[in-house]
Computed example of a mutant assay.
Amino acid sequence: MIYREEDFLQLSGLQHFAFCRRQWALIHIEQQWRENLRTVEGDLLHRRAHDEQARERRGDILILRGLSVASAALGISGKCDVVEFRADPGGISLRGEEGLWVPFPVEYKRGSPKPHRADELQLCAQAMCLEEMLCCTVSEGAIFYSETRRRTSVSFSRELREQVKAMLEEMHQLYRRGYTPKVRRSRSCNACSLKELCLPALMKENDVNAYLRQAMEVEP
């Protein structure tokens, strides 16, 4: 399937969706957002990474920041924090640059590596966009975590790519329906910036309508 540009979803939403489908819908469908310390720190980190005026050359590595990417096959668009183009005889040519180059996307995240794969999925989607735009193969990238000050290497396996495709297909379906999934309460809810909007404690009731009716009853 090829998506029209007006139907593209935000690439960054894949990370939200992988973390919590309800959080993604609240942000991307209902347009709700609240800041907390984690989101502010993450925003500052990405602002530094997205300095589009910065174009560095370090030996055989060309570094571009805030590179816009998109994929009609996936129906997404967004920006890469950093893409390192590494000199490689098996790479592609770049306008204004001599030689051949292989893209290596790098995503900047606050904190440390997480137990889920949300960050890896977002990075893999960036790589798939680069492949479509540049007609090349991007086999690996890295995530830089601010807490550990280290990179975590990510291999874009077939399994990871299929998971990206499946999640994006589900995201498009939910977006077209304008549907916000019900909450699935977990430990992650406490760290979510939207917990006061999501109300996970309230939504755990088996029958929310009955709960609301009971809460609104006026005692005689």
Results as ranks from 00 to 15, higher is better:
104 F>G: 11
18 A>N: 05
60 D>V: 10
106 V>K: 12
85 F>V: 05
98 E>Y: 06
18 A>D: 06
25 A>R: 03
22 R>L: 00
102 V>Q: 15
99 G>K: 12
55 R>V: 11
88 D>P: 05
44 L>G: 05
34 R>N: 01
47 R>N: 10
63 I>L: 10
107 E>M: 02
58 R>C: 07
83 V>P: 12
35 E>C: 04
108 Y>F: 08
43 D>P: 02
72 A>Q: 15
37 L>F: 09
36 N>R: 14
105 P>I: 00
18 A>P: 02
38 R>A: 15
98 E>M: 03
57 R>I: 14
27 I>Y: 04
77 S>Y: 12
62 L>P: 06
55 R>K: 13
37 L>G: 05
58 R>M: 09
69 V>Q: 10
74 L>M: 13
42 G>Y: 01
72 A>T: 14
48 R>D: 10
86 R>V: 15
69 V>Y: 09
31 Q>Y: 09
94 L>C: 03
82 V>H: 05
38 R>D: 14
59 G>V: 04
22 R>N: 04
50 H>M: 02
84 E>S: 11
46 H>K: 03
72 A>D: 14
62 L>M: 10
55 R>T: 10
74 L>R: 14
74 L>W: 14
72 A>R: 15
90 G>I: 03
73 A>Y: 09
85 F>T: 08
100 L>E: 01
101 W>C: 06
29 I>K: 07
90 G>Q: 15
27 I>V: 10
72 A>N: 13
78 G>T: 11
48 R>N: 07
35 E>L: 07
24 W>R: 11
78 G>V: 06
25 A>H: 00
94 L>R: 08
57 R>C: 09
20 C>D: 03
42 G>E: 00
23 Q>M: 06
35 E>N: 13
50 H>I: 00
76 I>L: 15
18 A>Q: 06
88 D>V: 09
67 L>H: 01
78 G>M: 08
105 P>G: 05
81 D>Q: 09
54 A>M: 14
54 A>H: 13
83 V>I: 15
29 I>A: 05
54 A>N: 13
110 R>L: 02
68 S>G: 08
74 L>D: 14
35 E>G: 03
82 V>W: 04
27 I>W: 01
48 R>Q: 12
103 P>M: 14
40 V>F: 07
71 S>R: 10
33 W>N: 03
107 E>N: 08
32 Q>V: 02
25 A>N: 00
94 L>N: 05
73 A>N: 12
104 F>T: 11
49 A>L: 11
25 A>W: 01
60 D>H: 15
83 V>M: 12
38 R>W: 14
51 D>V: 00
78 G>S: 09
99 G>D: 07
66 G>N: 03
111 G>Q: 13
107 E>G: 02
49 A>G: 12
20 C>I: 03
71 S>L: 03
64 L>S: 09
32 Q>F: 01
47 R>P: 01
32 Q>P: 04
111 G>A: 13
74 L>G: 13
22 R>D: 01
79 K>N: 07
100 L>V: 01
34 R>T: 01
96 G>R: 12
55 R>P: 00
40 V>W: 06
84 E>F: 08
67 L>F: 07
98 E>R: 14
106 V>D: 06
88 D>T: 11
67 L>D: 01
24 W>M: 05
24 W>Y: 15
96 G>W: 10
49 A>K: 13
31 Q>I: 04
61 I>P: 02
79 K>R: 15
56 E>S: 10
37 L>W: 12
18 A>H: 08
33 W>M: 04
42 G>H: 05
29 I>D: 05
37 L>M: 07
